[in-house]
Design a protein around this nucleic acid. Sequence first.
DNA 1: ACGTTGTTTGTTAGCGCTAACAATTGAGAG
DNA 2: CTCTCAATTGTTAGCGCTAACAAACAACGT
Lengths: 347, 347
Amino acid sequence: MRRMLAHNSFMVNSSERRLPRLEDVAERAGVSHQTVSRVINNHPNVSKATRERVEAAIAELGYRRNTAARSLVTRRSHTIGVLASELSQYGPANTLLGVEQAARNAGYFVSIAALREVGAESVADAVRHFMDQGVDGIVALVPHAETLAALEKLSLDVPVVVVGSSGEGRFSGAMVDQKLGARLAVAHLIEQGHRRIGHVSGPQDWIDGAQRTEGWREALADAGLADDLLVEGDWSAGSGYGIGQKLAVERAATAVFVGNDQMALGLLRAFGEAGVRVPQDVSVVGFDDQPEAGYFTPPLTTVRQDFEELGRRCMDMMLALLEDSARAGATVVDPRMVVRASTAPPA
Amino acid sequence: MRRMLAHNSFMVNSSERRLPRLEDVAERAGVSHQTVSRVINNHPNVSKATRERVEAAIAELGYRRNTAARSLVTRRSHTIGVLASELSQYGPANTLLGVEQAARNAGYFVSIAALREVGAESVADAVRHFMDQGVDGIVALVPHAETLAALEKLSLDVPVVVVGSSGEGRFSGAMVDQKLGARLAVAHLIEQGHRRIGHVSGPQDWIDGAQRTEGWREALADAGLADDLLVEGDWSAGSGYGIGQKLAVERAATAVFVGNDQMALGLLRAFGEAGVRVPQDVSVVGFDDQPEAGYFTPPLTTVRQDFEELGRRCMDMMLALLEDSARAGATVVDPRMVVRASTAPPA
DNA sequence: ACGTTGTTTGTTAGCGCTAACAATTGAGAG
DNA sequence: CTCTCAATTGTTAGCGCTAACAAACAACGT
């Protein structure tokens, strides 16, 4: 008891010269360092008395295991790499939060790598970065089909969970059922009596974009309606605005299902400028339900996705894979309608 | 040359049993492992011939340095922890991207920890997480003054860079000049002839919120105008909507400077419903210039901040601190006005 | 020729931890 | 009172790397 080390929970790290090691704890508890190792790793064969003595010593010294040393011998870094593009978007950002939460709860670290651009080289670069770090697994938040394809071409020796994939490829996946969401949106419009239902889609090379369009098409087919009113945007409010200007002139549809809330915002703006009233003249449905959607002009009917839940599910799946690398599969989160003022029966 | 290992740039990791080590490279190049270490660490005293031989061997074997082993001996993880709250918001998310970009370019890994709630215990928890991981430094993306205070109370032995702090505390900081941004916004309104300029502020316990309010106050004082029209919101569109309803009844101001774009959206919505025309009856200025701001009804005049640049500056500062821990200070990014249709001279 | 530099390379130890094995102890059966 | 077995604890080796030192070698002036 040469020196008294603080173990106040608010004192995260003392300014001592050297951090205590297993050996220091062992000495203090009067056991071997291996016994201390057993205690911190919850090995069963440690007597209760010893365990308590060791735990006391750990608390007194404020001992924290050295991750690098453990990684070196176990070949496990307890780090999950999150490969993300479009992290500034509402969806991916919240998914990341879900992943982080679940990971930290499970004792894992979360490392991120943002994709600078879409393309195989950029993906390979990010993956190399993760391999250098020795991540135990990779969660791919990659909405582009191309990115996913590039990832599948790489020969990886860690498990990969893809967000937004149905898990039919090489990797496990967790996804919000985009097709279902689109069908809900279109069903809502049909229920209100709409027969000419257009679609402002997201880019079709995005997995979610293609899925939503497919759902729109299926719902229309089920109802015996035509699926000829389709325009492709780029997710941005600006593209929605441009498309809205055209649609305002054409006036072919009484309702429009828009691929995301941002494009819907642009559409509403264009309609407003052109004197097309929403919902009296045209009904508009968005997708995502970002927090602002309820304050658009008019408040937007949209499809809500629980991105955080998606992230948590992802991490759950990753943990399962890390325990038993044989297992794989997919988990699906259901979206739901949020009806606001931008939809109404046609005139 | 028993086995031929691929070193195709697309093959990130072979499925060999064991990854090659320094020793393997050394053997192949006919040198000692230490010489290989010198090559990969760019030590000067290696002859050109040897260096080339070693580099060839590295490429042939696809050797990648084991981070855990290096960390164990150097006590450097080459990892930066980003402590973030409100990561789902436009600003912090983009700042994170800037940090990630600069970090990866500098050969650093980026680990994240999201704050589950505001409060000292949550901060201590996240910091402990980072210390367990052995991060070399922490970038704090913490907009609450309280969070920052909690962080300052901890005794940390790694450098900390705070985003949004002016660097006058214990830590270095990188910030967008919020006060200047607010002054620009108010100056723009004054220039248009407004004399009664209200402010819908963000929460005053947020650093940025308080700064913007202060800037509004100063600009008014400089012009000899009253600063009595102040209401505090919570950054959300919903709070902006509620406040907008009240302001629409009171009609005390001819112009409103709103603390962020989202609250401005809510305000516009409330004004629209109440028949208050923007900008004819009231001018509105936002803050942030998120991508959608140009498509509000009407398009929003606002103050643009370059969040990614902020993130990059942060990381630059961190790198400087890591090289020379004595250095500290602050770096400031200037915001700029983006004038759109929501502002006009008073009637 | 000689020592005296400086440059390049090799050897050794050890970072802090866990896995594998070895040793010790105690309890119960014979 | 020994023997066996299981439970508990200790000992040893080594994960892959870098720092520190040692050795070898060349170049140079005297």
